[in-house]
Amino acid sequence: MRRHSFEHDGLVFSFLDAGGEGQPLLALHGHWMGGSDFSGLAADLGPGWRLIALDQRGFGETDHNAPHDIPAYLSDAIALLDHLSIDRPVPVLGHSFGGVVACHLAAARPDRVSALIIEDIGVTLDDDSSAHVANWGGVFRLREDLEDRLGPRLSPYLQNSIRRVADGWTLNFEPAEFLLSERAINGDHRGVWLQSRCPALVVSGSESRICDPAELQAMAQSRENTAFIQLRAGHSVHIDAPAEFARHLRAFLEDSCA
Rank of each mutant, 00 (worst) to 15 (best):
L150N: 04
S161G: 14
L150W: 12
S161R: 14
E144C: 13
G191Q: 09
S129E: 01
L125I: 02
D145K: 11
D188V: 07
E147P: 12
G137S: 14
N172E: 05
S155K: 15
G168M: 14
V165R: 07
D128Q: 00
G122I: 04
L179A: 02
D127Y: 09
S130P: 02
L179Q: 01
H189M: 14
P199F: 00
N160F: 09
D167H: 11
L116H: 01
W169L: 06
A134H: 02
V165M: 14
F173N: 07
I121N: 01
N172C: 12
R183K: 13
S129A: 12
P175L: 05
P156G: 14
V165D: 14
E144P: 11
R164S: 13
D128A: 00
I162T: 12
V192M: 13
L179E: 01
S181W: 05
R197P: 05
C198D: 03
F173E: 05
P156I: 06
P156T: 11
I162G: 07
L154C: 08
P175N: 06
G122M: 04
D188Q: 07
V165W: 10
I162R: 04
R143K: 15
I185H: 08
R149Q: 15
L179S: 01
P175D: 08
F173R: 12
G168W: 15
P199T: 02
G151T: 04
C198S: 11
G122L: 02
L150F: 05
G138I: 05
R183F: 00
P199E: 01
L146V: 07
L180W: 15
V123F: 06
W193N: 06
D128E: 02
D167V: 04
N160I: 06
D148Y: 15
G151A: 08
L146R: 13
D127W: 06
R149P: 02
T124N: 04
E182H: 00
F178K: 08
A134M: 03
L116A: 01
G151R: 04
V139H: 04
S181Y: 07
G122R: 03
G191F: 10
I118C: 14
P156H: 14
D120V: 02
D148W: 14
V139G: 07
G168E: 12
S181C: 04
Q195I: 06
W193H: 08
D120K: 02
R153M: 06
D188Y: 10
W169F: 08
I118E: 09
C198I: 10
R164A: 10
L150D: 03
I121R: 01
E177I: 03
G137H: 03
F178A: 12
R197D: 06
R143H: 11
G187W: 06
R163N: 13
T170A: 15
N135H: 09
S161E: 10
I185T: 15
E182C: 00
A184T: 05
D128L: 00
P152K: 10
